[in-house]
């Protein structure tokens, strides 16, 4: 296997750099996916039927909590990659662990929020607004869940194999994914929650 030592380990083989380009392209598709969901949401957001509006439904505290958890996790994820570049295995593991725990925390708050909504009688079938809200948030939440499983799998592999061209490549790609989910959340926070609460 040809290894280019002038670039970080995660880029070092041809296969590795292909994978990183491929993942960027995949994120392009993800942007298209979330754009469509946002477009749907913006089309339907004031078609509330007999159900509650966003203004009546949204609670600032939970949302701030979610935002804080996810933004921090994105930061620690960045730290993990930084540590990885310097070859600090233990630090990388710790930062990844914090990232995933924060991600779990985010999911926990989101699920609580969903339960509250449903408890208040706001379900996916109440109105077009709520359908689009649940699907938009749910798709993001599902991505976070998959990310947690994926991150855990990568941690196990780093623990077993150390930093190799493969594990660093996977970690780096995972970090791209995680930051992307963070960016999506910033849009959700601004254009769904803040706009809705105003």
């Amino acid at each position: 296997m040809k290894i280019n030592s002038n670039v970080p380990l995660e880029y070092s083989t041809e296969e590795n750099s292909n994978k990183i380009l491929g993942f960027w392209l995949f994120l392009g598709a993800e942007i298209a996916l979330f754009s469509t969901l946002f477009a749907t949401y913006f089309t339907l957001w004031n078609r509330t039927g007999n159900g509650p509006t966003g203004h009546e439904l949204f609670e600032l505290n939970g949302v701030l909590m979610e935002t804080f958890l996810l933004l921090t996790s994105s930061f620690t994820c960045g730290l993990a990659i930084h540590a990885m570049r310097h070859g600090f295995k233990k630090a990388t593991m710790v930062f990844f662990a914090i990232t995933l725990v924060l991600g779990l925390g985010f999911l926990g708050v989101e699920i609580t929020e969903f339960v509250t909504y449903v408890h208040d009688g706001a379900t996916v079938s109440t109105s077009a607004f709520l359908s689009s809200l649940f699907v938009l948030l749910g798709t993001h939440g599902l991505h976070v869940s998959m990310g947690i499983l994926w991150g855990a799998a990568i941690m196990i592999q780093i623990k077993r194999q150390g930093f190799t061209a493969e594990t660093t490549n996977k970690s780096f790609i995972f970090s791209l994914y995680w930051h992307f989910l963070d960016v999506v959340w910033i849009f959700i926070f601004s254009f769904v929650y803040l706009k809705g609460m105003m």
Binding site: A32, S125, A128, F129
Partner: peptide, 29 residues
């Protein structure tokens, strides 16, 4: 293709999980 995926997912929600995206009542469009 992501647009199709979303459209089909919304269709699935409308048909199978009581979604209201494209319905004639409750604000669907």
């Amino acid at each position: 293709f992501p647009v199709l995926t979303v459209a089909l997912a919304l269709m699935m929600f409308d048909r199978m999980f009581g979604g209201q995206f494209f319905t004639m009542a409750n604000g669907g469009m």
